[in-house]
Write a protein that binds this DNA or RNA. Structure first.
Lengths: 132, 132
DNA sequence: CCTCCTCGGTTACCGTTGGTTACCTGGTCG
DNA sequence: CGACCAGGTAACCAACGGTAACCGAGGAGG
């Protein structure tokens, strides 16, 4: 008998309890789905360091990003309330992006992850490349 | 693979300096490419908590995972030296997986991320669902 | 005896999604 | 006349993830 009901007996309620990382609404999964995007971590870091930046400037500081992906990523972060978008109705219009407090709070665990990556990834990549 | 033209001005050397998060060999990007996988965080957490588990047991504790993805994920983690695979040549053969010290060290920043997710994601998801 | 199930996978196939390039707007500055 | 600003839209492709089938050995049930 295969229990596909996530092991939780009779609990249709999704309360996203702490510790139950395997619930359908697992917050960690949702978070990783977002910050796992190719540009998210980069943009968050850039904004965390630079404060407020306008679109073209942010694009310049994100080598390799296309306009579409930058816009798309920023929209997503806006929806998540991690960045704010501020438009100055000048001519030409200037659009500024900056992190919200929530965005800054995300940058903290993200910084821990960055540090781990910078410490350990080179070794991993090294071993990996010669092992395979 | 990741050797695409990042506007890198003739720099075949990849030294992965700290602080240069935008180099082609950006360690944070590489890390996110790995742990961003759908099952990686889940498996690392499970192994971090349970210690050593055999394949079928790990599969049971990872609701929704297919044999293919579990194997594939574990192989990747093996290549990264985050988990070790131990085979007991009994009949039937038993295969055990556990975290390496490196894997455990990764679990620490990952735990910070989990905590952030559990704290803030519900609010984000809530706002997101009613905003769009 | 015969069949089903478990263990630990591998392989083939297939759909969705993420990311990319290319091309469009439309106003302004030099 | 062009480039720059801040994007939008369309088409395309590879990778990620899922399903299904298969493997060989052994144990359980009828």
């Amino acid at each position: 008998m295969e229990d596909r009901t996530f092991g939780t007996p009779g609990h249709p309620e999704v309360t996203s309890r702490r510790g139950d990382l395997f619930s359908p609404a697992c917050p960690t999964r949702q978070l990783l789905d977002r910050i796992g995007g190719k540009w998210v971590a980069m943009i968050v870091k850039t904004l965390a360091e630079a404060g407020e930046l306008r679109y073209a400037e942010l694009k310049r500081r994100t080598p390799g990003v296309s306009a579409k992906m930058l816009t798309q990523t920023l929209r997503g972060l806006e929806d998540d309330q991690l960045v704010t978008r501020r438009v100055e109705a000048t001519i030409p219009p200037a659009v500024f992006y900056s992190l919200t407090p929530l965005g800054h709070s995300l940058d903290e665990p993200l910084a821990a992850l960055r540090e781990w990556a910078e410490t350990h990834m080179p070794h991993i990549a090294d071993h990996r490349s010669r092992a395979r």
